[in-house]
Amino acid sequence: MTHRTDTHPDLARPDAGAALFSTWRVGTPLRQREAVEAIARTWERRPWPAGGLLGYHVYTGHDASTLLHYSQWRSPRDYDGFVKAHRQERVDEIDTAVPGVERLGLGRFRRYRGLARPDETRVPGCVVIVDIEFERPDPDRQRAWVDAVVDALESEPRPHPGGISAHFHLSTDGTRVLNYAGWESAQAHLDALAAPGDGIGSATDQWRRVQTWPGLKGTTVSRYDHAIGFVPDRG
């Protein structure tokens, strides 16, 4: 059966072989709420759709217009099986309840590495998605850039206390890196952005290297609240 949860996902779970991110544009705060409610009804009334689906979570964008969807799978093949057998009926029911949802695309990723203090117990009050795009596919460059970011974070002389965690994902097409970052609050993230310098981080050689990386095409930053999650009922 399907179990509804308010608990944030464990992004570092070792059995997750695929991470999928997608964004819907729904237009208004009211339609955000209506879409989350429609998703909840659609999922709760049905059995858990696939043994390879580990968890599915929905987030409301601070732009008051979008929803972020994040799901963990044992493998990409498990997701493809879900699409063939179960996805369309769920999409149709949600679209009937909230017509006009604009689906902006699906990104296929795999988590590469992350950062969090071993004694960290805070629950993120805000999830920040940093989406980095490169000029052309290059898996080696993806990994090298993330390694450079981790080096910059670990050597940061003045880390912002509001940062909780960072989980770096590599797109399977070799063109993007997505950082799912947990922050204490949206204001903590805004304060970190407003500090002297170019974005998060001090004016160190490590951060300059990250920011001037060859082939870096563009970066988008979006803030979200965790709205709802679904996991298989283990009972």
Rank of each mutant, 00 (worst) to 15 (best):
83 V>L: 15
101 V>D: 00
43 W>E: 01
189 H>I: 10
104 L>Y: 04
1 M>N: 03
74 R>N: 01
17 G>V: 09
52 G>T: 04
41 R>L: 02
114 G>C: 05
46 R>Y: 03
129 I>T: 10
13 R>T: 05
55 G>Y: 08
18 A>P: 01
124 P>M: 12
155 S>F: 08
20 L>F: 07
231 V>I: 14
74 R>G: 01
105 G>D: 09
90 R>T: 05
171 S>E: 13
109 F>N: 06
66 T>L: 05
147 D>K: 13
122 R>C: 01
71 S>A: 15
90 R>N: 04
30 L>I: 13
72 Q>E: 12
203 A>M: 12
209 R>I: 04
31 R>P: 00
85 A>V: 15
165 S>C: 02
204 T>F: 05
14 P>M: 10
134 F>A: 03
105 G>A: 12
94 I>V: 15
14 P>Y: 09
98 V>Q: 08
141 R>S: 10
170 L>A: 05
128 V>P: 02
10 D>V: 10
8 H>M: 09
211 Q>G: 00
62 H>M: 11
59 Y>T: 02
50 A>N: 02
22 S>Q: 13
39 I>F: 07
69 H>N: 11
214 P>H: 05
107 G>P: 13
35 A>R: 10
68 L>P: 03
125 G>N: 14
80 D>T: 15
186 A>S: 11
37 E>P: 01
167 H>W: 14
63 D>Y: 10
224 Y>C: 00
96 T>A: 06
173 D>W: 13
213 W>E: 03
126 C>V: 08
234 R>L: 07
178 L>W: 12
52 G>I: 03
101 V>W: 10
151 D>V: 09
24 W>V: 04
19 A>K: 13
73 W>T: 06
165 S>G: 01
96 T>Y: 06
3 H>P: 01
183 W>R: 12
11 L>N: 02
132 I>A: 08
58 V>P: 00
152 A>E: 04
227 A>E: 10
202 S>V: 11
26 V>F: 06
155 S>Q: 14
192 A>I: 07
108 R>N: 07
38 A>M: 09
141 R>M: 11
144 A>P: 06
46 R>I: 04
